[in-house]
């Protein structure tokens, strides 16, 4: 079981509209950080996501979706505010958070879906 995720990325993967569906179905637990370059709170959350991707390597795969460049996916998921985190288990949306938050606040949420 623990070996299953050995090859999974330990840092966030940039995902585009065209890759999105394949990406969220590729791993059992995927968290997508929806962000844009000019969003201040997104830049607060960014380093937290980088860290979590390392901490949870092999258990969770993190993706980053630039909503400026990938408006179709943002629209499909009704995103009207960033940063938004989308939580997918086996390709199904199971949870969502909005706004920047410290790692200590985010971790319980992440672990509740492990």
């Amino acid at each position: 079981m623990s070996d299953a995720g050995a090859d999974w990325p330990g840092e966030p993967v940039n995902v585009s509209d065209s890759e999105f569906n394949e990406f969220i179905g590729k791993y059992p637990y995927v968290i997508i950080d929806c962000w844009a370059p000019w969003c201040g709170p997104c830049r607060i959350l960014g380093p937290v996501i980088d860290e979590l991707a390392g901490d949870y390597k092999g258990k969770i795969v993190f993706g980053k979706l630039n909503t400026d460049e990938n408006q179709a996916t943002a629209m499909t998921h009704g995103i009207m505010s960033i940063p938004t985190l989308l939580f997918f288990k086996n390709g199904e949306l199971v949870d969502k958070t909005m706004g920047a938050m410290p790692k200590t606040a985010l971790e319980p949420k992440i672990q509740s879906h492990l």
């Binding site: 844009a36 000019w38 969003c39 201040g40 408006q71 943002a74 505010s81 909005m98 706004g99």
Partner: peptide, 17 residues
């Protein structure tokens, strides 16, 4: 409705509108 049309950051969310 925060994040569902209510926002506190126009630079962040303006593009959705």
């Amino acid at each position: 409705l925060t994040g569902r049309g209510v926002s506190y950051c126009a630079t962040c969310d303006g593009a959705f509108f």
